[in-house]
Design a binder for these strands. Structure first.
Length: 694
RNA sequence: UCGGGGAUCGUCUAACGGUAGGACUGCAGACUCUGGAUCUGCCUGUCGGGGUUCGAAUCCCUGUCCCCGAACCA
């Protein structure tokens, strides 16, 4: 159990608040909800639900200049879509009058005052982490004067910025939030709900605890960055003598290969990197919905992620796995061919059509079934045929027999190619005795592939999505770069002329489907039209074959093409880092070794590391446009490391950089010898920095 | 230079001071009319150094690293 539920149960045991549990979800209506909010929603609503409590939806609308009604509907739709219901819907602006009264109360108690310093002066007077604050000259105003000024502030007698109301706490506090924080500021702005009623607006730090208290929220759950605000939260509650809500902070959600900050998301949209907030690559709930993610899947994901106070970045693979896990149970199966390859059955009657029965779910009969037509010409996936099949190939090749899913056994006899040698058509024969998919003689076939009858096929456009970023943590930007530099250029692939089984012609788009052997797909709720279907790939199926093949081709390339780099595109940094570290252990497999990316590096500079006994610092050019720094522990054998300068050395280039006391070591240099004599492996010749070494 | 929070397999996350467990990933295998699903097995971890204790992830001391905080934003 997580720490928040532990607290809640303890409170319940102690009968705190008479065993009542009340939470709230407090979005600011100034943006779309994303998966990070989904975590907060699941926590806020989930805790309430589990302990028989209530959860309110409350808009934190205390800053009229950035907020808009436009977002209110979107937020509510997202929450409902996730499957939660709020106990009551409120706006912080509902409480403006009450807050105003409490502000006057604080003035009367002498714990709040009107300050007339400028914004810059207040900042200056407040000091910083290392410098104590200085009290404002207006801090000593009388209660009467404060009250008069504050009332005139409300009445609109002053322009923006002329005065503010501040809490009188402690200018020397180590906690900057306690250095006489602002309670009210003047803003002559139109508010989306209160219109022109107010020209002073409360700050979050004041509005939040008061709103919580007025709703008698027992557990006010929020993210870690509000931790330092908690003392202030409690101070306002105490001074205003209102219901003692308790604020508890938890870590916000982060996911690999994506960004979740409002600012960056906005940048993706405004910069045209994606096609709007509902682009299926976006981590927004609208985007994920359009992509076909299920609300239950998202809730399961949040549950699996857990709840704690540790900053963390969850592997996107967990999201994908959870989604497959959910969709596997709920998605009807259909057949569709993404990249069609025409196949003709020579021994099939020309105008004949066979109808085969196919269940919508192989493990759950309640899904029902449909009939699919089969005829002389059909399409299979380009990928399911290989003229020159690799090892362990179960699918079609000339002379081999496969099962056409739910139909029959089919053998390929001929391959037709165009003038460029591309396979454009296959011919073959079917076994009429294998109708339904099994042969009467009981012979086994290795593979089963999907297909669509050409005559009956429905054309569709299919959009394949991949991770939006190539970097595990796109927020972690290198010097001189920005997060958009890590956008995955292949995050969207549009396929046209895809062939789907006829049952899909009038599919209503109500759920995410599985295209057998490919993945989960849903109808695009924006661009799809009857007769011009558009499907989005939610997530691919787990592809064990792709892994096997990737391994074997890696092997082959290493053997056959020593001139070619071992890897053409950068490996996922994480995977590479893990495996090559493993590879340096005594017993490794050949596969592991292939993952080590050896490169020729030209030593630009070499020096002894001051303060270290064994280290040598090398600056090496790997042809990357910048030099790498590599620390090597063989100083004993290179008292004068300058002999290495301008020599080529062999560098393990795909090692995860290691933070050392003296700096970051971005790779390893190969060396050989025994305890008494170690030499860095160098070589001369016609190499360029960065050339692969095999 | 200040204050607050945090640190457990590659990643998340559990463990009254008492067998470091689960999930994801990875790997190996079984099964299969989806190379899907399912099933089995394996790899991998308590940030470092001291101490208290029969026994420490847990308590104490100390160090290191990471995050947050100086909006008239939320």
């Amino acid at each position: 159990m997580d720490f928040i539920r532990t607290i809640v149960e303890e409170d319940l045991r102690n009968n705190k608040h008479n065993g009542r549990i009340a939470t709230r979800f407090p979005p600011e209506p100034n943006g779309y909800l994303h998966i990070g909010h989904a975590k907060a929603i699941c926590v806020d609503f989930g805790v309430a639900l589990e302990y028989g409590g209530t959860c309110n939806l409350r808009y934190d609308d205390t800053n009229p200049v950035v907020e808009d009604v436009e977002f209110v509907d979107a937020i509510e739709e997202d929450i409902k879509w996730l499957g939660f219901e709020w106990n009551a819907k409120y706006y912080a602006s509902d409480y403006f009058e009450k807050m105003y009264e409490l502000a006057e109360l604080m003035i009367k108690k002498g714990v709040a005052y009107v300050d007339s310093l400028s914004e810059a002066e207040i900042r200056e007077y407040r000091g910083n982490f290392y410098k104590k604050g200085v009290e404002s000259p207006y801090r000593g105003r009388s209660i009467e004067e404060n009250l008069d000024l504050f009332r005139r502030m409300r009445a609109g007698e002053f322009p923006d910025g002329a005065h503010v109301l501040r809490a009188k706490i402690d200018l020397n506090s180590q906690n900057m939030n306690m250095r006489d924080p602002l309670i009210y500021r003047i803003k002559h702005a139109h508010h989306h709900r209160t219109g022109e009623d107010w020209c002073i607006y409360p700050m979050y730090d004041f509005a939040h605890p008061i709103s919580d208290a007025l709703e008698e929220i027992t557990h006010s759950l929020c993210t870690l960055e509000f931790e330092a605000h908690r003392p202030l939260y409690e101070w306002f509650i105490e001074q205003c003598e209102v219901f003692p809500s308790r604020q508890i902070e938890f870590a916000r959600l982060n996911i690999t290969y994506t960004v979740l900050s409002k600012r960056r998301l906005l940048r993706l949209v405004n910069g045209g990197y994606v096609n709007g907030w509902d682009d299926p690559r976006m981590p927004t709930l609208v985007g994920m919905r359009r992509r076909g993610y299920s609300p239950t899947g998202i809730r399961k994901f949040v549950e699996r992620v857990g709840l704690a106070k540790t900053d963390s970045i969850v592997d996107v693979a967990l999201l994908e796995h959870t989604m497959r896990d959910d969709l596997n149970d709920t998605a009807p199966r259909v057949m569709g061919v993404l990249r069609p390859l025409k196949v003709v059955i020579d021994n099939f009657p020309d105008d004949h059509v066979e109808w085969f029965d196919a269940p919508y779910h192989p493990d759950d009969p309640s899904f029902g079934s449909r009939k699919i037509p089969f005829s002389k010409v059909f399409y299979i996936e380009e990928d399911d045929f290989r003229e020159d099949p690799p090892k362990k190939w179960f699918r079609l090749t000339k002379g081999s027999e496969v099962r056409l899913r739910y139909a029959c056994l089919f053998k390929c006899t001929d391959v037709i190619k165009d003038e460029n040698g591309n396979v454009v058509e296959l011919h073959g024969t079917w076994d009429p005795d294998s109708k339904g998919g099994t042969a009467p003689d009981g012979r086994k076939v290795l593979g089963t592939i999907h297909w669509v009858s050409a005559e009956h096929a429905v054309d569709a456009e299919i959009r394949l999505y991949d991770r939006l970023f190539t970097k595990e943590n796109p927020n972690d930007v290198e010097e001189g770069k920005e997060f958009t530099d890590y956008i995955n250029p292949d995050s969207l692939q549009i396929l046209k002329g895809c062939k789907l089984e006829p049952a899909l012609a009038d599919f209503d788009g109500s759920k995410t489907l599985q295209f057998e052997r490919l993945g989960y797909f849903c109808l695009d709720n924006k661009d799809s039209k009857p007769g011009a279907l558009v499907f989005n790939r939610t997530v691919s199926l787990r592809d064990t074959w792709a892994k096997i093949e990737a391994r074997t081709t890696a092997k082959k390339e290493a053997k056959a093409a020593p001139q070619k780099p071992v890897q053409e595109k950068p490996e996922l940094p994480n995977a590479a880092a893990r495996d090559d570290l493993k590879a340096l252990e005594p017993e490794i497999s050949f596969d592991d070794f292939v993952k080590v990316d050896l490169r020729a590096g030209l030593v630009k500079d070499a020096s002894l590391v001051e303060g270290a006994k064994k280290l040598l610092k090398l600056t090496v050019d790997l042809g990357e446009g910048r030099y790498r720094t590599i620390f090597a522990g063989i100083r004993a054998f290179y008292p004068d490391p300058s002999v290495l300068v301008d020599r080529f050395v062999i560098v393990v280039a795909n090692l995860k950089p290691r933070q050392m006391k003296f700096g970051l070591s971005e790779g390893m240099v190969l060396a050989g010898g025994d305890d008494n004599n170690v030499l860095i492996a160098t070589f001369d010749g016609q190499l360029k920095p960065g050339d692969p070494v095999t």
